[in-house]
Design a protein around this nucleic acid. Structure first.
Length: 515
RNA sequence: GGUCCGUUCAUCUAAGGGUUAGGAUACAAGAUUUUCAUUCUUGUCAUAGGGGUUCGAAUCCCCUACGGACUACCA
Protein backbone atom coordinates (compact mmCIF):
# COMPACT_ATOMS: atom_id res chain seq x y z
CA UNK A 1 0.00 0.00 0.00
CA UNK A 2 1.39 3.33 -0.96
CA UNK A 3 1.14 6.18 1.48
CA UNK A 4 -0.21 9.35 0.01
CA UNK A 5 2.07 12.33 0.04
CA UNK A 6 1.00 14.91 2.59
CA UNK A 7 -0.30 18.00 0.87
CA UNK A 8 -2.11 20.61 2.93
CA UNK A 9 -3.34 24.04 2.08
CA UNK A 10 -4.01 27.29 3.80
CA UNK A 11 -6.90 28.89 2.00
CA UNK A 12 -7.67 32.37 3.30
CA UNK A 13 -10.24 34.70 1.91
CA UNK A 14 -8.90 38.18 1.12
CA UNK A 15 -11.65 39.96 2.99
CA UNK A 16 -9.37 41.64 5.49
CA UNK A 17 -6.23 41.11 7.49
CA UNK A 18 -5.41 37.66 8.78
CA UNK A 19 -6.12 37.48 12.46
CA UNK A 20 -4.25 35.39 14.99
CA UNK A 21 -6.67 32.50 14.71
CA UNK A 22 -5.97 32.39 11.00
CA UNK A 23 -2.25 32.52 11.58
CA UNK A 24 -2.58 29.60 13.96
CA UNK A 25 -4.46 27.59 11.35
CA UNK A 26 -1.73 28.39 8.82
CA UNK A 27 0.92 27.45 11.37
CA UNK A 28 -0.63 24.08 12.15
CA UNK A 29 -0.91 23.32 8.44
CA UNK A 30 2.68 24.36 7.91
CA UNK A 31 3.98 22.31 10.84
CA UNK A 32 2.00 19.28 9.77
CA UNK A 33 3.31 19.49 6.21
CA UNK A 34 6.91 19.86 7.26
CA UNK A 35 6.65 17.20 9.92
CA UNK A 36 5.61 14.73 7.24
CA UNK A 37 7.87 16.01 4.50
CA UNK A 38 4.84 17.23 2.57
CA UNK A 39 3.76 20.34 0.73
CA UNK A 40 2.18 23.44 2.17
CA UNK A 41 0.08 25.23 -0.39
CA UNK A 42 -1.42 28.69 -0.23
CA UNK A 43 -4.62 29.24 -2.15
CA UNK A 44 -6.70 32.40 -2.23
CA UNK A 45 -10.43 31.80 -1.89
CA UNK A 46 -11.83 34.95 -3.40
CA UNK A 47 -15.10 33.64 -4.78
CA UNK A 48 -17.06 36.41 -3.12
CA UNK A 49 -16.24 39.43 -5.22
CA UNK A 50 -18.45 41.58 -3.03
CA UNK A 51 -16.25 41.15 0.00
CA UNK A 52 -12.93 41.70 -1.69
CA UNK A 53 -10.69 44.08 0.23
CA UNK A 54 -7.76 45.66 -1.58
CA UNK A 55 -4.45 44.88 0.04
CA UNK A 56 -5.75 41.97 2.06
CA UNK A 57 -4.07 39.33 -0.08
CA UNK A 58 -0.70 41.08 0.05
CA UNK A 59 -1.15 41.49 3.78
CA UNK A 60 -1.75 37.78 4.27
CA UNK A 61 1.37 36.84 2.33
CA UNK A 62 3.46 39.40 4.19
CA UNK A 63 2.12 38.31 7.55
CA UNK A 64 2.93 34.67 6.90
CA UNK A 65 6.40 35.63 5.71
CA UNK A 66 7.01 37.62 8.88
CA UNK A 67 6.05 34.53 10.87
CA UNK A 68 8.32 32.40 8.73
CA UNK A 69 5.38 30.28 7.67
CA UNK A 70 6.50 29.91 4.09
CA UNK A 71 4.30 28.14 1.55
CA UNK A 72 6.11 25.58 -0.58
CA UNK A 73 3.58 26.03 -3.35
CA UNK A 74 1.32 28.79 -4.60
CA UNK A 75 3.79 31.67 -4.58
CA UNK A 76 6.15 32.91 -7.25
CA UNK A 77 9.81 33.55 -6.52
CA UNK A 78 9.06 37.17 -5.76
CA UNK A 79 6.32 36.30 -3.32
CA UNK A 80 3.15 36.80 -5.33
CA UNK A 81 0.28 34.38 -5.79
CA UNK A 82 1.27 32.22 -8.75
CA UNK A 83 -0.85 32.77 -11.85
CA UNK A 84 1.05 30.63 -14.33
CA UNK A 85 1.91 26.98 -13.87
CA UNK A 86 5.59 26.11 -13.51
CA UNK A 87 7.69 23.44 -11.84
CA UNK A 88 7.09 24.82 -8.38
CA UNK A 89 3.46 25.73 -8.95
CA UNK A 90 1.97 23.02 -11.17
CA UNK A 91 -1.60 23.84 -10.19
CA UNK A 92 -1.53 27.57 -10.92
CA UNK A 93 -3.43 29.78 -10.79
CA UNK A 94 -3.87 29.63 -7.01
CA UNK A 95 -6.44 32.37 -6.88
CA UNK A 96 -9.94 30.98 -7.27
CA UNK A 97 -11.23 34.00 -9.15
CA UNK A 98 -8.70 33.10 -11.84
CA UNK A 99 -9.89 29.50 -11.90
CA UNK A 100 -13.41 30.71 -12.56
CA UNK A 101 -13.90 28.95 -15.90
CA UNK A 102 -13.13 25.61 -14.37
CA UNK A 103 -15.95 25.26 -11.88
CA UNK A 104 -19.07 25.44 -13.99
CA UNK A 105 -18.53 22.05 -15.59
CA UNK A 106 -18.35 20.46 -12.14
CA UNK A 107 -21.58 22.09 -11.07
CA UNK A 108 -23.23 20.86 -14.24
CA UNK A 109 -21.81 17.41 -13.79
CA UNK A 110 -23.70 17.19 -10.52
CA UNK A 111 -26.91 18.38 -12.15
CA UNK A 112 -26.55 15.72 -14.83
CA UNK A 113 -25.91 12.99 -12.30
CA UNK A 114 -28.95 14.09 -10.32
CA UNK A 115 -27.05 15.35 -7.28
CA UNK A 116 -27.86 18.98 -7.94
CA UNK A 117 -30.41 21.12 -9.71
CA UNK A 118 -30.99 24.55 -11.16
CA UNK A 119 -32.98 26.96 -9.03
CA UNK A 120 -34.58 30.14 -10.34
CA UNK A 121 -35.62 31.87 -7.16
CA UNK A 122 -35.16 35.60 -7.06
CA UNK A 123 -33.39 37.07 -4.05
CA UNK A 124 -36.64 38.91 -3.26
CA UNK A 125 -38.61 35.68 -3.20
CA UNK A 126 -36.08 34.06 -0.87
CA UNK A 127 -36.11 37.06 1.43
CA UNK A 128 -39.88 36.93 1.57
CA UNK A 129 -39.75 33.25 2.52
CA UNK A 130 -37.21 33.99 5.22
CA UNK A 131 -39.31 36.78 6.62
CA UNK A 132 -42.38 34.60 6.59
CA UNK A 133 -40.58 31.88 8.52
CA UNK A 134 -39.22 34.41 10.95
CA UNK A 135 -42.72 35.63 11.75
CA UNK A 136 -43.62 32.07 12.64
CA UNK A 137 -40.45 31.91 14.75
CA UNK A 138 -38.95 29.36 12.44
CA UNK A 139 -35.80 29.31 10.42
CA UNK A 140 -36.19 29.10 6.70
CA UNK A 141 -34.33 26.14 5.30
CA UNK A 142 -34.13 25.48 1.59
CA UNK A 143 -34.52 21.72 1.74
CA UNK A 144 -36.37 18.79 0.18
CA UNK A 145 -39.70 20.18 1.31
CA UNK A 146 -39.30 23.59 -0.27
CA UNK A 147 -37.51 22.57 -3.46
CA UNK A 148 -40.63 20.85 -4.73
CA UNK A 149 -42.54 24.14 -4.28
CA UNK A 150 -40.07 26.37 -6.05
CA UNK A 151 -39.21 27.12 -9.65
CA UNK A 152 -36.37 24.66 -10.23
CA UNK A 153 -35.23 22.18 -12.80
CA UNK A 154 -36.95 19.62 -10.59
CA UNK A 155 -40.38 21.22 -10.93
CA UNK A 156 -40.31 23.01 -14.27
CA UNK A 157 -40.68 21.34 -17.67
CA UNK A 158 -37.37 20.78 -19.47
CA UNK A 159 -38.15 23.33 -22.12
CA UNK A 160 -38.77 26.09 -19.64
CA UNK A 161 -35.64 25.20 -17.73
CA UNK A 162 -33.61 25.54 -20.90
CA UNK A 163 -35.26 28.86 -21.63
CA UNK A 164 -34.67 30.23 -18.18
CA UNK A 165 -31.04 29.17 -18.23
CA UNK A 166 -30.74 31.31 -21.34
CA UNK A 167 -32.65 34.39 -20.20
CA UNK A 168 -32.45 34.46 -16.45
CA UNK A 169 -29.10 35.70 -15.19
CA UNK A 170 -29.71 34.97 -11.54
CA UNK A 171 -30.16 31.22 -11.44
CA UNK A 172 -28.03 29.06 -9.20
CA UNK A 173 -27.05 25.42 -8.90
CA UNK A 174 -28.12 23.90 -5.61
CA UNK A 175 -26.99 20.66 -4.06
CA UNK A 176 -29.83 18.19 -3.71
CA UNK A 177 -29.40 17.21 -0.11
CA UNK A 178 -30.48 13.58 0.40
CA UNK A 179 -33.39 13.02 2.73
CA UNK A 180 -32.94 11.51 6.15
CA UNK A 181 -29.52 10.03 5.78
CA UNK A 182 -26.97 9.70 8.54
CA UNK A 183 -23.64 10.95 7.32
CA UNK A 184 -20.85 9.37 9.31
CA UNK A 185 -17.72 11.43 9.28
CA UNK A 186 -14.28 11.19 10.75
CA UNK A 187 -12.31 14.04 12.18
CA UNK A 188 -8.66 13.60 13.17
CA UNK A 189 -9.16 15.71 16.28
CA UNK A 190 -12.73 14.90 17.28
CA UNK A 191 -13.21 11.34 16.15
CA UNK A 192 -16.51 10.14 14.73
CA UNK A 193 -19.22 12.69 14.06
CA UNK A 194 -22.61 11.77 12.65
CA UNK A 195 -25.15 14.20 11.26
CA UNK A 196 -28.53 13.49 9.75
CA UNK A 197 -29.14 15.23 6.43
CA UNK A 198 -32.66 16.22 7.39
CA UNK A 199 -31.23 19.16 9.32
CA UNK A 200 -29.22 20.37 6.34
CA UNK A 201 -30.22 22.58 3.44
CA UNK A 202 -29.70 22.60 -0.32
CA UNK A 203 -26.59 24.72 -0.45
CA UNK A 204 -25.88 26.91 -3.43
CA UNK A 205 -22.87 25.60 -5.31
CA UNK A 206 -22.64 27.94 -8.24
CA UNK A 207 -24.13 31.32 -9.13
CA UNK A 208 -24.88 32.47 -12.65
CA UNK A 209 -24.93 36.10 -11.53
CA UNK A 210 -21.15 36.26 -11.26
CA UNK A 211 -20.25 32.93 -12.80
CA UNK A 212 -18.45 31.91 -9.63
CA UNK A 213 -18.80 28.89 -7.38
CA UNK A 214 -19.47 29.23 -3.68
CA UNK A 215 -16.91 28.17 -1.15
CA UNK A 216 -18.19 24.62 -0.91
CA UNK A 217 -17.86 23.74 -4.57
CA UNK A 218 -14.61 25.60 -5.19
CA UNK A 219 -13.11 24.09 -2.10
CA UNK A 220 -13.91 20.51 -2.97
CA UNK A 221 -12.93 20.87 -6.61
CA UNK A 222 -9.63 22.57 -5.85
CA UNK A 223 -8.72 20.21 -3.06
CA UNK A 224 -9.28 17.36 -5.49
CA UNK A 225 -7.38 19.02 -8.33
CA UNK A 226 -4.53 20.00 -6.07
CA UNK A 227 -4.41 16.54 -4.54
CA UNK A 228 -4.86 17.77 -0.97
CA UNK A 229 -4.39 14.95 1.54
CA UNK A 230 -5.42 16.70 4.76
CA UNK A 231 -7.74 19.58 5.40
CA UNK A 232 -6.81 21.39 8.62
CA UNK A 233 -9.16 24.28 9.20
CA UNK A 234 -11.14 26.11 11.85
CA UNK A 235 -14.04 24.64 13.76
CA UNK A 236 -16.46 26.99 12.05
CA UNK A 237 -16.32 24.57 9.12
CA UNK A 238 -17.41 21.52 11.04
CA UNK A 239 -21.12 22.11 10.37
CA UNK A 240 -20.50 22.00 6.64
CA UNK A 241 -18.42 18.84 6.75
CA UNK A 242 -21.42 16.59 5.92
CA UNK A 243 -22.01 18.64 2.78
CA UNK A 244 -18.39 18.22 1.83
CA UNK A 245 -18.54 14.47 2.42
CA UNK A 246 -21.63 14.25 0.28
CA UNK A 247 -19.99 16.28 -2.47
CA UNK A 248 -17.01 13.94 -2.61
CA UNK A 249 -19.45 11.10 -2.80
CA UNK A 250 -21.55 12.73 -5.52
CA UNK A 251 -18.48 13.40 -7.63
CA UNK A 252 -17.25 9.86 -7.06
CA UNK A 253 -14.07 11.21 -5.53
CA UNK A 254 -14.09 9.41 -2.22
CA UNK A 255 -10.88 7.63 -3.24
CA UNK A 256 -8.89 10.84 -2.89
CA UNK A 257 -11.03 12.50 -0.27
CA UNK A 258 -8.75 14.24 2.21
CA UNK A 259 -8.77 13.59 5.91
CA UNK A 260 -10.22 16.38 8.02
CA UNK A 261 -9.09 18.06 11.19
CA UNK A 262 -11.11 20.89 12.69
CA UNK A 263 -9.25 23.18 15.05
CA UNK A 264 -11.00 24.73 18.01
CA UNK A 265 -11.45 28.47 17.99
CA UNK A 266 -9.52 31.17 19.77
CA UNK A 267 -11.78 32.83 22.31
CA UNK A 268 -11.86 36.26 23.93
CA UNK A 269 -9.58 36.60 26.97
CA UNK A 270 -12.54 37.73 29.01
CA UNK A 271 -16.22 37.13 28.65
CA UNK A 272 -17.68 35.09 25.90
CA UNK A 273 -17.35 34.45 22.23
CA UNK A 274 -14.64 34.06 19.69
CA UNK A 275 -11.79 36.46 19.55
CA UNK A 276 -12.58 39.43 17.37
CA UNK A 277 -10.95 42.54 16.05
CA UNK A 278 -12.63 44.68 18.68
CA UNK A 279 -11.24 42.72 21.62
CA UNK A 280 -7.75 43.87 20.80
CA UNK A 281 -8.62 47.53 21.04
CA UNK A 282 -10.79 47.01 24.06
CA UNK A 283 -8.25 44.97 26.02
CA UNK A 284 -5.10 46.53 24.65
CA UNK A 285 -3.40 43.80 22.67
CA UNK A 286 -3.06 43.13 18.95
CA UNK A 287 -5.20 40.54 17.20
CA UNK A 288 -3.29 40.86 13.94
CA UNK A 289 0.27 39.83 13.16
CA UNK A 290 0.98 43.08 11.33
CA UNK A 291 -0.58 46.48 11.70
CA UNK A 292 -3.41 47.07 9.25
CA UNK A 293 -5.06 50.14 7.94
CA UNK A 294 -8.53 49.49 6.63
CA UNK A 295 -8.66 50.92 3.12
CA UNK A 296 -12.32 51.86 3.43
CA UNK A 297 -12.71 53.24 6.93
CA UNK A 298 -9.08 54.25 7.39
CA UNK A 299 -9.27 52.55 10.75
CA UNK A 300 -5.91 51.48 12.14
CA UNK A 301 -5.33 48.17 13.90
CA UNK A 302 -2.14 47.38 15.71
CA UNK A 303 0.01 44.37 14.97
CA UNK A 304 2.31 42.07 16.90
CA UNK A 305 5.25 43.14 14.81
CA UNK A 306 4.66 46.83 15.43
CA UNK A 307 4.03 46.21 19.12
CA UNK A 308 7.54 44.83 19.35
CA UNK A 309 6.99 41.10 19.37
CA UNK A 310 9.56 38.81 17.85
CA UNK A 311 8.05 36.47 15.28
CA UNK A 312 9.58 33.52 17.14
CA UNK A 313 7.66 34.49 20.26
CA UNK A 314 4.47 35.04 18.34
CA UNK A 315 4.71 31.62 16.68
CA UNK A 316 5.65 29.98 19.96
CA UNK A 317 2.64 31.30 21.80
CA UNK A 318 0.30 30.44 18.94
CA UNK A 319 1.62 26.89 18.72
CA UNK A 320 0.82 26.32 22.37
CA UNK A 321 -2.72 27.54 22.02
CA UNK A 322 -4.52 24.30 21.45
CA UNK A 323 -1.49 22.06 21.15
CA UNK A 324 1.27 20.84 23.43
CA UNK A 325 4.00 18.27 23.06
CA UNK A 326 3.06 16.42 26.25
CA UNK A 327 6.23 17.51 28.01
CA UNK A 328 6.81 20.53 30.20
CA UNK A 329 8.82 22.34 27.58
CA UNK A 330 7.24 25.65 26.58
CA UNK A 331 9.89 27.40 24.55
CA UNK A 332 10.40 26.15 21.01
CA UNK A 333 12.07 27.19 17.82
CA UNK A 334 10.10 26.73 14.63
CA UNK A 335 12.21 23.68 13.76
CA UNK A 336 11.60 22.14 17.15
CA UNK A 337 7.89 22.61 16.60
CA UNK A 338 8.18 20.92 13.23
CA UNK A 339 9.80 17.91 14.84
CA UNK A 340 7.28 17.61 17.65
CA UNK A 341 3.99 18.59 16.04
CA UNK A 342 1.17 16.12 15.63
CA UNK A 343 -2.55 16.39 15.18
CA UNK A 344 -3.00 13.74 17.87
CA UNK A 345 -2.05 16.26 20.54
CA UNK A 346 -4.30 19.05 19.35
CA UNK A 347 -6.84 20.01 21.99
CA UNK A 348 -10.56 19.88 21.26
CA UNK A 349 -11.75 22.75 23.40
CA UNK A 350 -11.52 26.41 22.55
CA UNK A 351 -8.66 28.41 24.06
CA UNK A 352 -9.03 31.83 25.57
CA UNK A 353 -6.25 34.03 24.39
CA UNK A 354 -4.01 35.25 27.19
CA UNK A 355 -2.14 38.51 26.46
CA UNK A 356 -0.07 38.22 29.65
CA UNK A 357 1.46 35.00 28.56
CA UNK A 358 2.15 36.46 25.13
CA UNK A 359 4.37 39.02 26.82
CA UNK A 360 6.15 36.35 28.77
CA UNK A 361 7.02 34.50 25.56
CA UNK A 362 8.50 37.65 24.12
CA UNK A 363 10.54 38.28 27.23
CA UNK A 364 11.92 34.75 26.99
CA UNK A 365 12.83 35.15 23.33
CA UNK A 366 14.39 38.56 23.96
CA UNK A 367 16.79 36.99 26.42
CA UNK A 368 18.03 34.54 23.87
CA UNK A 369 19.08 37.36 21.55
CA UNK A 370 22.70 38.48 21.54
CA UNK A 371 23.59 41.93 22.83
CA UNK A 372 24.84 42.81 19.35
CA UNK A 373 21.55 41.90 17.73
CA UNK A 374 19.55 43.82 20.31
CA UNK A 375 21.84 46.80 19.89
CA UNK A 376 21.05 46.90 16.17
CA UNK A 377 17.35 47.00 16.98
CA UNK A 378 17.80 49.58 19.70
CA UNK A 379 19.90 51.80 17.45
CA UNK A 380 16.85 52.34 15.29
CA UNK A 381 15.01 53.94 18.17
CA UNK A 382 18.05 55.84 19.36
CA UNK A 383 18.48 57.38 15.93
CA UNK A 384 14.83 58.38 15.95
CA UNK A 385 15.48 60.11 19.23
CA UNK A 386 18.38 61.96 17.69
CA UNK A 387 20.98 60.09 19.68
CA UNK A 388 24.21 58.97 18.13
CA UNK A 389 25.99 56.24 20.01
CA UNK A 390 28.67 53.74 19.06
CA UNK A 391 27.47 50.18 18.39
CA UNK A 392 29.89 48.89 20.94
CA UNK A 393 28.51 51.20 23.62
CA UNK A 394 24.88 50.34 22.82
CA UNK A 395 25.78 46.64 22.87
CA UNK A 396 27.08 46.99 26.41
CA UNK A 397 23.96 48.88 27.45
CA UNK A 398 21.81 46.11 26.01
CA UNK A 399 23.74 43.58 28.04
CA UNK A 400 22.84 45.48 31.19
CA UNK A 401 19.17 45.90 30.52
CA UNK A 402 17.97 42.96 28.48
CA UNK A 403 16.94 40.90 31.49
CA UNK A 404 14.78 43.73 32.70
CA UNK A 405 12.87 44.16 29.44
CA UNK A 406 10.00 42.43 27.71
CA UNK A 407 10.28 44.37 24.47
CA UNK A 408 13.02 46.27 22.72
CA UNK A 409 10.54 49.11 23.12
CA UNK A 410 11.18 49.00 26.87
CA UNK A 411 14.87 49.74 26.39
CA UNK A 412 14.69 53.52 26.37
CA UNK A 413 12.70 53.66 29.56
CA UNK A 414 15.28 51.36 31.13
CA UNK A 415 18.42 52.98 29.81
CA UNK A 416 17.86 56.61 28.88
CA UNK A 417 20.38 57.65 31.55
CA UNK A 418 23.13 55.95 29.55
CA UNK A 419 22.56 58.51 26.84
CA UNK A 420 21.40 61.68 28.57
CA UNK A 421 21.87 63.04 32.08
CA UNK A 422 18.76 62.88 34.23
CA UNK A 423 16.68 66.02 34.12
CA UNK A 424 14.20 64.91 36.72
CA UNK A 425 14.69 62.90 39.86
CA UNK A 426 12.27 60.26 41.03
CA UNK A 427 10.28 61.81 43.87
CA UNK A 428 9.94 58.75 46.03
CA UNK A 429 13.62 57.97 45.75
CA UNK A 430 14.54 61.54 46.65
CA UNK A 431 12.34 61.41 49.68
CA UNK A 432 13.88 58.16 50.78
CA UNK A 433 17.55 58.72 50.02
CA UNK A 434 18.18 62.45 50.03
CA UNK A 435 18.49 64.69 53.09
CA UNK A 436 20.35 67.95 53.89
CA UNK A 437 23.54 66.02 54.67
CA UNK A 438 23.57 64.18 51.38
CA UNK A 439 24.77 66.90 49.03
CA UNK A 440 28.02 67.67 50.89
CA UNK A 441 28.77 63.97 50.99
CA UNK A 442 28.22 63.69 47.25
CA UNK A 443 30.62 66.55 46.67
CA UNK A 444 33.23 64.68 48.68
CA UNK A 445 32.44 61.52 46.73
CA UNK A 446 33.09 63.46 43.55
CA UNK A 447 36.62 64.22 44.69
CA UNK A 448 37.15 60.58 45.57
CA UNK A 449 35.96 59.56 42.11
CA UNK A 450 38.08 62.22 40.43
CA UNK A 451 41.20 60.58 41.80
CA UNK A 452 40.46 57.13 40.36
CA UNK A 453 42.71 56.10 37.48
CA UNK A 454 41.95 54.14 35.38
CA UNK A 455 38.23 54.56 35.85
CA UNK A 456 37.24 50.88 35.84
CA UNK A 457 34.43 49.13 37.59
CA UNK A 458 36.85 47.41 39.97
CA UNK A 459 38.77 50.54 40.82
CA UNK A 460 35.64 52.57 41.42
CA UNK A 461 34.15 49.89 43.63
CA UNK A 462 37.36 49.62 45.61
CA UNK A 463 37.78 53.36 46.10
CA UNK A 464 34.18 54.02 47.03
CA UNK A 465 34.03 51.12 49.47
CA UNK A 466 37.24 52.26 51.08
CA UNK A 467 36.00 55.83 51.43
CA UNK A 468 32.74 54.64 52.97
CA UNK A 469 34.51 52.34 55.41
CA UNK A 470 37.18 54.77 56.51
CA UNK A 471 34.61 57.46 57.21
CA UNK A 472 32.10 55.09 58.83
CA UNK A 473 29.45 56.10 56.37
CA UNK A 474 26.23 54.24 55.64
CA UNK A 475 26.72 52.10 52.57
CA UNK A 476 23.05 52.04 51.54
CA UNK A 477 22.58 55.75 51.99
CA UNK A 478 25.66 56.66 49.97
CA UNK A 479 25.06 54.21 47.16
CA UNK A 480 21.45 55.17 46.72
CA UNK A 481 22.17 58.86 46.73
CA UNK A 482 25.00 58.29 44.29
CA UNK A 483 22.63 56.30 42.06
CA UNK A 484 20.10 59.09 42.25
CA UNK A 485 22.68 61.55 40.95
CA UNK A 486 23.65 59.33 38.02
CA UNK A 487 20.40 57.57 37.09
CA UNK A 488 17.80 59.93 38.47
CA UNK A 489 15.89 57.06 39.96
CA UNK A 490 16.22 54.05 42.16
CA UNK A 491 16.72 51.53 39.43
CA UNK A 492 19.21 49.94 37.11
CA UNK A 493 22.15 47.57 37.14
CA UNK A 494 25.27 47.66 39.26
CA UNK A 495 26.18 51.29 39.78
CA UNK A 496 29.92 50.75 39.36
CA UNK A 497 29.26 49.18 35.96
CA UNK A 498 27.19 52.19 34.99
CA UNK A 499 29.85 54.58 36.20
CA UNK A 500 32.63 52.83 34.31
CA UNK A 501 30.64 52.82 31.09
CA UNK A 502 29.59 56.45 31.44
CA UNK A 503 33.21 57.48 32.16
CA UNK A 504 34.62 59.76 34.79
CA UNK A 505 33.88 63.14 33.22
CA UNK A 506 30.20 62.41 32.81
CA UNK A 507 29.88 61.01 36.33
CA UNK A 508 31.50 64.09 37.85
CA UNK A 509 29.40 66.35 35.68
CA UNK A 510 26.21 64.68 36.88
CA UNK A 511 27.17 64.93 40.55
CA UNK A 512 28.40 68.49 40.26
CA UNK A 513 25.31 69.64 38.37
CA UNK A 514 23.30 69.14 41.53
CA UNK A 515 23.14 72.21 43.67
C1' G B 1 -35.26 27.89 18.09
C1' G B 2 -32.58 23.70 15.42
C1' U B 3 -27.91 20.95 14.42
C1' C B 4 -23.07 19.95 15.79
C1' C B 5 -18.74 20.63 18.98
C1' G B 6 -16.87 21.37 23.74
C1' U B 7 -16.24 21.76 29.64
C1' U B 8 -9.42 20.16 34.85
C1' C B 9 -6.75 26.25 39.07
C1' A B 10 -8.32 33.36 36.99
C1' U B 11 -5.70 31.81 32.06
C1' C B 12 -2.86 28.05 28.81
C1' U B 13 -2.54 23.03 29.87
C1' A B 14 -0.55 17.60 31.93
C1' A B 15 -2.52 13.14 33.93
C1' G B 16 -5.25 7.59 27.95
C1' G B 17 -9.43 3.53 35.22
C1' G B 18 -5.24 3.46 40.72
C1' U B 19 -0.67 10.37 41.46
C1' U B 20 -0.70 14.20 47.94
C1' A B 21 -4.49 16.01 40.33
C1' G B 22 1.64 18.04 37.78
C1' G B 23 3.73 22.37 35.01
C1' A B 24 3.48 27.44 33.03
C1' U B 25 1.42 32.55 33.12
C1' A B 26 -0.74 35.94 36.49
C1' C B 27 -1.10 37.10 41.70
C1' A B 28 0.98 37.06 46.88
C1' A B 29 4.92 36.32 50.48
C1' G B 30 10.04 35.52 51.61
C1' A B 31 15.38 35.24 50.31
C1' U B 32 19.24 37.69 47.46
C1' U B 33 20.89 42.84 45.78
C1' U B 34 23.81 49.50 46.95
C1' U B 35 18.37 50.39 44.04
C1' C B 36 14.99 48.37 40.38
C1' A B 37 14.65 44.13 37.76
C1' U B 38 16.47 39.27 37.30
C1' U B 39 17.12 34.76 39.97
C1' C B 40 15.69 31.34 43.85
C1' U B 41 12.12 29.47 47.53
C1' U B 42 7.22 29.22 49.13
C1' G B 43 2.01 30.06 48.96
C1' U B 44 -3.30 30.77 47.23
C1' C B 45 -6.23 28.45 43.34
C1' A B 46 -9.24 23.36 39.47
C1' U B 47 -11.67 18.00 37.72
C1' A B 48 -19.39 22.29 36.11
C1' G B 49 -23.67 19.49 38.70
C1' G B 50 -26.30 14.87 39.14
C1' G B 51 -26.80 9.81 38.15
C1' G B 52 -24.68 5.22 36.64
C1' U B 53 -20.51 1.22 35.28
C1' U B 54 -16.32 -0.38 38.48
C1' C B 55 -12.91 -2.90 44.12
C1' G B 56 -11.48 1.95 42.21
C1' A B 57 -13.61 7.53 37.65
C1' A B 58 -10.81 13.92 35.95
C1' U B 59 -10.58 9.62 32.68
C1' C B 60 -16.08 5.17 30.29
C1' C B 61 -21.82 5.84 29.72
C1' C B 62 -26.41 8.86 30.48
C1' C B 63 -28.96 13.37 31.97
C1' U B 64 -28.73 18.52 33.24
C1' A B 65 -26.28 23.13 33.20
C1' C B 66 -23.01 26.27 30.91
C1' G B 67 -19.89 27.83 26.76
C1' G B 68 -18.91 27.93 21.49
C1' A B 69 -19.68 27.34 16.24
C1' C B 70 -23.05 26.95 12.35
C1' U B 71 -27.93 27.88 10.63
C1' A B 72 -26.44 33.36 3.27
C1' C B 73 -26.59 33.38 -4.08
C1' C B 74 -19.96 34.95 2.97
C1' A B 75 -15.82 32.41 3.70
Amino acid sequence: MTVRKVRVRFAPSPTGPLHIGGVRTALFNYLFARRHGGDFIIRIEDTDSGRFVPGAEAYIIKALAWCNILPSEGLTADGKIAEQPDARNPHAPYRQSQRKALYRQYAEQLVESGHAYYAFDTPEALNALRKEAEEKKETFTYNCKVRTQRPTSLTLPAGEVAARLQQDTHWVVRFKMPENRDVRMHDLIRGEVTVNTSTLDDKVLWKAADGLPTYHLANIVDDRLMDISHVIRGEEWLPSLPLHYLLYEAFGWTDTQPEFAHLSLLLKPDGKGKLSKRDGDRLGFPVFPLAWKDPLSGELSRGYREDGYFPEAFINLLALLGWNPGTEQELFSLNELVNLFGLDRVIKSGAKFNPDKAKWFNQQVLRTKSNEELAQLYQVELRERGITAADDYVTQVCGFIKERATFVGDFWELSAYFFTAPTAYDEKAVKKYWNPKTLPLMKVLATVLAAIEPFTKENIAHAVHEWIASNSLNMGAIMNAFRLCIVGASKGPDLFEIAALLKKEEILRRINSII
